[in-house]
């Protein structure tokens, strides 16, 4: 059969096959790039205060406000197939002082896009212009993986379902990442070395204890700062 329809069908079939093979090769190329990320995270300041989950709630819960220092070198995660790297810092703590750390909550996160994905970011026009300009002429910008944050305020205040958090012992901050490819497998911080992909060097803070509830009377002094 050599009708137009059959030809069209063949062309379309070949086109999709080629697309999928190329996509597959690109996805596989991820494994050829070495990954050796490193980071250090340390706690700067912790406070535990009482508050409500939202404005209309009558429930009072304890919230931990954490400030931390973060230094990362994730530049090896940026390759031609990297769309974005999602970096997040989590706090983990045990439910009871003798048990394992079975609670985990993200306290801060950020999205680092590759220059090729900058236009997809949900940010204002001024910030977008600055972002695009920062990697002008580059399709891959590994320097974006280097973060250096000092005394960074947590984005999310952690709490627990019991509403109790003050004086919790053995709390640890951990740095994680999630690499979002243009096509292929999503990858997270590996637990063990996997070929050229090394585990995160550092990335765990020293264990610390959440302080006792902050007294209301101390407030006025700090309020001015």
């Amino acid at each position: 059969m050599h009708s137009t329809l059959v030809r069209a069908q063949n062309v379309f079939g070949f086109f999709t096959t080629v697309c999928f093979v190329v996509a597959g090769l690109i996805a596989l190329s991820d494994f050829s790039w070495e990954r050796k990320p490193s980071s250090t995270v340390s706690v700067k300041d912790v406070q535990v205060v009482r508050g409500r989950p939202h404005y209309y709630s009558t429930k009072k819960e304890e919230y931990a406000h954490i400030r931390f220092n973060l230094n990362t070198d994730l530049s090896s995660l940026f390759t031609w197939n990297t769309k974005q790297v999602f970096v997040y810092v989590s706090a983990t703590w045990p439910s009871n002082s003798t048990g394992p750390r079975d609670n985990e909550a993200v306290i801060w996160d950020t999205i680092i896009t590759s220059p090729s994905a900058d236009h997809l970011q949900n940010i204002g026009p001024a910030a977008m212009k600055k972002l695009v300009k920062s990697a002008k002429g580059k399709s891959i910008d590994p320097s974006r993986g280097k973060l250096n944050l000092k005394n960074q305020k947590a984005k999310y205040q952690i709490t627990s379902p019991t509403g109790k958090l003050a004086e919790t012992d053995d709390v640890v901050l951990k740095v994680h990442y999630n690499v979002q490819p243009w096509v292929g497998m999503l990858t997270w911080t590996p637990q063990v070395d996997f070929g050229g992909w090394k585990t995160m060097k550092g990335g765990v803070s020293k264990a610390f204890t959440l302080p006792a509830l902050k007294k209301k009377k101390e407030e006025p002094k700090k309020a001015t700062s």
Binding site: F86, S90, D102, A105, V106, Y156, H176, W188
Partner: peptide, 28 residues
């Protein structure tokens, strides 16, 4: 399944599953 993973979940009374990231996990 741990914090940071992107999961697809169902909510009672809604027929369309949601794709979002896991940000907190209490207990095991």
């Amino acid at each position: 399944t741990k914090v940071g993973e992107i999961v697809v979940y169902n909510v009672k009374g809604k027929d369309i599953p949601i794709v979002h990231r896991l940000v907190r996990k209490f207990g095991t």
